[in-house]
C-alpha cells in the first residue's frame, strides 16, 4: 500500500517538474541557453492565478489568463533579453538569466508583499478515493491529468502541424532549418510562449495544491528543473519527461528513507552527479 502511495506521490511531483522542465528543454534545444529565469513564469503564473480566481471566482479563467500572460512575457524575455546576447559564450546568457530571476523574485515581493497570497475560494480541495485505498486531493488528480493532456496535445501538434514540424526541425538543426526558410525568430517566439505558458500552468496548479503563492516559490523549481533537463539529455523532450517522473519518484522514496542523511534537494543532485559521471550526456540522451 505504502509503496503504491509513494509512487503515486512521486508521479504527482514528477508531473509538476515535467511541466516546468519542458519549457526549459524547448529553450535549450533551440538556443543552447540555460534559462534560469524560466521559474519566474512559474511564480508569475501562481500570482496571476490567485488574483484572477479571487476576482472572478473561476479557476478556468485563472488558468487561461495565467498561461496567456506568462506566454507573452516569455516572448518579451526572448526578444529583449536573450536575442541580443545569443552570440556570446554560454556563461553570459546564464548569468544574465540568474540576474533576471533574482530581480523578478524581488519584484514579486515588492509588488505583492512578502507573505504571499491565498485563494478565497476552495478549488479542487475535495478528496477522491481510488481503488479503495489511494486517497487524493482533487487538485492532485488535476495536476496529473492536466499535464498528461497538455503534453499529449503538444506532441500531437508537434508532429501533425506545419509549425510544429518547423519547430522540431529548428531544434535539431537550426542552420539547416533556416536555409529551408523557417524563421528562427518565429520558432523562438513559439517556444518561449509555449514553455512559459506551461510553467504558468504548473504555477497555478501548485498554488492550488498549497493554497499559497509566495515570491520565492520558484527558487527550488528553478534549479531542480535544470537538473532534470540535464538528466534528460538537454533538449530532448521525451528524455525530460522521463527524467522528471523518475526524479519525482526517487525523491518521494528518498524523503522517507534517506531523509535523515540528505535533504530533498541534495538527493536530487546526488542522483544527478551519479548519473552524469556514469553517462556524461544525460540519462535519456540519444547518442
Amino acid at each position: 500500500m505504502l509503496f503504491v502511495e509513494l509512487i503515486a506521490q512521486g508521479l504527482i511531483q514528477g508531473s509538476i517538474y515535467a511541466l516546468i522542465a519542458l519549457g526549459l528543454t524547448l529553450v535549450y534545444g533551440l538556443l543552447r541557453i540555460l534559462h534560469v529565469a524560466h521559474a519566474a513564469f512559474f511564480t508569475l503564473g501562481g500570482y496571476i492565478g490567485v488574483m484572477v480566481a479571487n476576482q472572478t471566482g473561476s479557476l478556468a479563467a485563472a488558468i487561461v489568463a495565467a498561461m496567456i500572460i506568462a506566454g507573452i512575457g516569455g516572448i518579451l524575455v526572448f526578444r529583449l533579453c536573450y536575442q541580443p546576447i545569443l552570440h556570446q559564450p554560454p556563461f553570459v546568457p546564464l548569468i544574465a538569466s540568474i540576474g533576471l530571476y533574482i530581480a523578478a523574485e524581488e519584484l514579486f515581493r515588492i509588488i505583492f508583499g512578502p507573505s504571499g497570497l491565498s485563494y478565497k475560494y476552495a478549488f479542487l480541495q475535495d478528496q477522491v478515493v481510488l481503488f479503495g485505498f489511494l486517497r487524493f486531493k482533487l487538485a492532485e488528480i488535476a495536476v496529473m491529468l492536466g499535464s498528461a493532456v497538455i503534453i499529449g496535445v503538444l506532441s500531437l501538434l508537434q508532429t501533425r502541424t506545419r509549425i510544429g514540424v518547423a519547430c522540431q526541425a529548428t531544434v535539431s538543426d537550426p542552420q539547416m532549418a533556416e536555409s529551408f526558410g523557417i524563421s528562427l525568430q518565429k520558432v523562438g517566439d513559439i517556444n518561449f510562449f509555449v514553455g512559459s505558458a506551461l510553467a504558468a500552468f504548473a504555477g497555478v496548479m501548485v498554488s492550488v495544491l498549497n493554497n499559497m503563492v509566495e515570491p520565492t516559490m520558484g527558487s527550488v523549481p528553478s534549479y531542480k528543473a535544470l537538473a532534470i533537463i540535464v538528466l534528460g539529455g538537454l533538449g530532448s523532450v521525451r528524455g525530460t519527461l522521463a527524467a522528471a517522473l523518475v526524479l519525482g519518484v526517487v525523491e518521494s522514496f528518498g524523503t522517507i528513507y534517506l531523509g535523515h542523511y540528505l535533504d530533498r534537494n541534495a538527493i536530487a543532485f546526488a542522483f544527478l552527479i551519479l548519473v552524469l559521471m556514469w553517462r556524461p550526456q544525460g540519462l535519456f540522451a540519444r547518442t
Partner: peptide, 20 residues
C-alpha cells in the same frame, strides 16, 4: 553546461551533507 550543473550539484550536496 553539464559541468555548470554538476558543480551546482556539488554545492547542494555539500550543504545537504553538512546539515545532517
Amino acid at each position: 553546461d553539464f559541468l555548470a550543473i554538476t558543480t551546482m550539484g556539488v554545492g547542494f550536496l555539500f550543504v545537504g551533507i553538512v546539515r545532517q
